[in-house]
């Protein structure tokens, strides 16, 4: 498993660069991850990220866009605004969780 140095810390990631250790994430790291992919974090981003992490912790699975909207209360249009073009992947990357497994 590769590791990479982000924000002066060694962070475990998969081959694409997604974090593999849930516990290695913190908010300061999220800010760096967001900057890496040119996302400027607002309160709405944080709300989405925090729900994604809480849901992953509870369900063992990253919420899909659909679940972000139906359970997390972040509607689909908003997801595309917050994390343009590839909302699920970008959100997962910043939130330090794996890409969603579900199809929908």
């Amino acid at each position: 498993m590769p590791a990479t140095t982000i924000n002066g810390r060694e962070i475990h990631v998969d081959d694409e660069g997604f974090l593999t250790e849930f516990a290695e994430w913190d908010e300061d790291l999220a800010k760096v991850l967001a900057a890496n992919i040119s996302v400027d974090l607002s309160d709405e981003h944080w709300a989405a990220i925090k729900f994604a992490r809480a849901d992953y912790k509870a369900q063992g699975e990253t919420p899909t866009i659909r679940r972000m909207s139906s359970v997390g209360g972040v509607d689909i249009k908003k997801m595309f605004q917050l994390f343009p073009k590839k909302p699920a992947k970008k959100m997962s990357y910043i939130a330090g969780v794996p890409k969603p497994q579900g199809c929908v």
């Binding site: 475990h12 694409e16 997604f18």
Partner: peptide
Amino acid sequence: MTTATQAPLIPNFDGDE
């Protein structure tokens, strides 16, 4: 055994365009 890379490994979202 982990291998630390120098440059941060960032997912390639270039397919954006």
